[in-house]
Design a protein around this nucleic acid. Structure first.
Length: 423
DNA sequence: TCTGGGGTCCTAGGACCC
DNA sequence: TCTGGGGTCCTAGGACCC
């Protein structure tokens, strides 16, 4: 049977979350900044209308912010994750199969629904329910492939006459919309590819769809070939209800200000390693390879840029933060260079195994800690419950490297002290 | 002054094997 | 003088996504 995908996507998600508990900001332009208050990562529709570009460093738009009274927020992931969870559980109540694709998007499997009227009615119902229950506006696009569903969603956002729902199951409607869509708006076509395609005279999504898939494969790769097939209604990207297991875990962050001492950077690094360890245990996996990296700013023209990174292997895969910290410090010592002002550091875990499945060699050392599983589980439980944080000694140096979050909103839905008060 | 973080997949090229 | 062919594995780098 021909599949039908629906893509549900929250409008201006982070900005909408910030407005949710602030009715006074209803018609105000709102932007949300990346970690460290660096770049613009979300804009309300009013901010978009003012021409604020996605990804622009905030210091470059200070004049507009002042002139138009744009309200700024630091990223508040506790809030966004909780609102996202509400949206996703609502979708799971409404549709048989849901693939959570990102914090603000999900694919629904609607295969089997033949009638366009029923599809559109369903889309409207999703929209109304989420708006009523959670207060977030979503758009819905429906089509026989994921790439076309993305396109349908895009159209639902762009054209108000659609009332936020577009059914793109008919071939004629597909071709009509493809002709109106610039090639760079196609899912899977980024800046580089769209430039190359334009050089070849391919400007619209329809022109890409009408290029023979074989030729695209020869000149580019199977990835773009799949996109071409998907644009023509041939589903190549499958529905994934269960998220695939992770292959790597990264924890990295820019510092609030330049870091120059080894003590600071090692404390920051241990903090990131601890977070990475938590994520690893949540996945119920153990890692054998760990990579550490430290960087100076690439934007400073008068100073030499330094970027050091080094990987190392544990003798046995581990999910014990003590093992991970020890290895990361060994690696850090080898890439640390005195005299630089560092702006970013991070750690990456890879080469994962299920707990206890690694085949160790005859001469390998046995695991170093016998209390590992129970200690880590206890640590995670305490830190998760928010009963006060427990951490390793190396993390405890002063946190003067911590990121900037000057415009943070309250954790309205996840912290008792931040709950909204109604008088 | 001030430029995010966390992922995935694919390809080319080198090392190595028989 | 003549110097193969086919395969795997690994890594770095590039491209994309949100």
């Amino acid at each position: 049977m021909r599949p039908i995908f629906a893509l549900v996507d929250c409008n201006n998600f982070y900005a909408s979350c910030e407005k949710l508990f602030r009715p006074d900001l209803k018609d105000t332009a709102v932007i949300v900044l990346s970690n460290n208050d660096g770049c613009v990562v979300a804009r309300s529709k009013e901010a978009k209308a003012l021409g604020i570009k996605m990804g622009i460093p905030v210091f470059k738009i200070q004049t507009q912010i002042r002139r138009y009274g744009i309200r700024i927020f630091s990223s508040n992931y506790a809030l966004y994750a909780d609102i996202s969870h509400r949206v996703m559980t609502t979708l799971e109540e409404m549709a048989p199969r849901v693939e959570i694709y990102s914090i603000d998007e999900a694919f629904l499997d609607l295969t089997g629904i033949q009638s366009s009227t029923i599809l559109v009615e369903f889309g409207q119902r999703v929209r109304e329910t989420i708006s009523q229950w959670i207060g977030i506006t979503v758009c819905v696009g429906m089509a026989p492939t994921k790439t076309l569903a993305k396109l349908a969603n895009h159209a639902a956002k762009q054209y108000s006459a659609t009332k936020g729902v577009v059914d793109l199951t008919s071939r004629e409607r597909q071709r009509k919309l493809l002709a109106l869509t610039p090639v760079e708006d196609v899912w899977g076509v980024g800046r580089r590819l769209s430039k190359q395609l334009q050089c070849m005279g391919i400007h619209s999504a329809l022109e890409l769809a009408d290029t023979p898939a074989k030729a695209i494969r020869q000149q580019f790769s199977v990835v773009l070939e799949r996109t071409v097939r998907e644009l023509n209604g041939e589903s190549c990207i499958e529905f994934e209800q269960v998220p695939p297991t992770k292959k790597q875990i990264v924890c990295s962050r820019s510092f609030g200000s330049e870091v120059t001492t080894y003590q600071q950077i090692s404390a920051a690094l241990c903090e990131y390693v601890s977070r990475a360890g938590e994520k690893l245990r949540k996945e119920r996996r153990q890692a054998r390879v760990l990579t550490v990296f430290i960087q100076t700013s690439p934007y400073k023209e008068n100073k030499p840029h330094y970027s050091g990174s080094l990987s190392g292997e544990l003798s046995l895969p581990s999910d014990d933060t003590r093992d991970l910290i020890e290895l990361s410090i060994r690696l850090l010592k080898r890439i640390w260079k005195e005299g630089h002002g560092y702006v970013k550091a991070g750690v990456m875990l890879s080469d994962f195994y299920d707990i206890g499945t690694f085949q160790s060699g005859l001469f390998d050392q046995p695991a170093r800690y016998s209390n590992s599983q129970s200690l880590m589980a206890t640590l995670d439980r305490i830190n998760h419950r928010g009963l006060g944080r427990v951490f390793f000694a190396r993390q405890s140096a002063s946190r003067d490297w911590a990121m900037k979050r000057d415009y943070l909103s309250p954790a309205y839905t996840t912290h008792w002290d931040h709950l909204i008060k109604v008088r």
